[in-house]
Amino acid sequence: MIWDLHCHLAGLPGRTPEERMARLMELADRMGIERLCLYMGLEFVVRPTPEQLRRQNDEVLQALAHWHDRAYGFCYVSGEHVDASLEEIERCVAEGPMVGIKLWVARRCSDAALDSIVARATELGAVVFQHTWFKQDGTQLAGESTPLDLATLAVRHPQAILVCGHTGGLWELGIRAVRAHPNIYVDLAGSDPTRGMVEMAVRELGAQRVLYGSDAPGRSFASQLGKVLAAEITAQQRQLILGANLRRLLGPILRAKGREA
């Protein structure tokens, strides 16, 4: 069972969300990926306006329309537009089919302005996915969170299900930064398939806190899946990372929506 935590529409060929989703699923099928999570629309928008947030989420909803049995949407929200984000959470998660929220690079997640967004997502049982990177080359964006920002957020929201996107990119630091916070899970997606990443995550966090994701189509499903398939871990740990953990995390919200996990 392989569930991919981290996929996008931007960067795929196709004019419409439906066309792009069909291509994404074709590639996922080749790799044996049964289910995947999808966030953000046809183009990447770094600092979306409220209108852009709505449009981006509409595009994901459109892409999901024929794939509800295999794909789950995360609602794109922004710490720069808290009220609009709360409205989107009501529309897409509380009243819609989405099961998580996605925070990208508009505002660092340690900022208290995000508290109401994370609190509402937590009430709904939605997974909170936060992009994180520790960039060493001077390209860190002003609003780009590091795993340390997420650790700060975790202290304020101990009941939230928080995902550390990309394990912070520089995973040796990212794993350490979130290690003490049991409600933070790490996403393996979107970095080079550097040997040792998965082993360190399992050793330091436990396999229950490690989630397979690809960041396709920016990344190859193959290169990211290879991290888990080749890691020197037990078969049981591999199963947890490839899908059982994500299934467990999404189970309550899916069941609340009357859907099978």
């Binding site: 550097t194 190859s220 193959a222 290879g226 890691a231």
Partner: peptide, 11 residues
């Protein structure tokens, strides 16, 4: 990881 290269051919 070796498999990351090999699996690209299947993908």
């Amino acid at each position: 990881y070796f498999e990351s290269a090999r699996l690209k051919l299947r993908e």
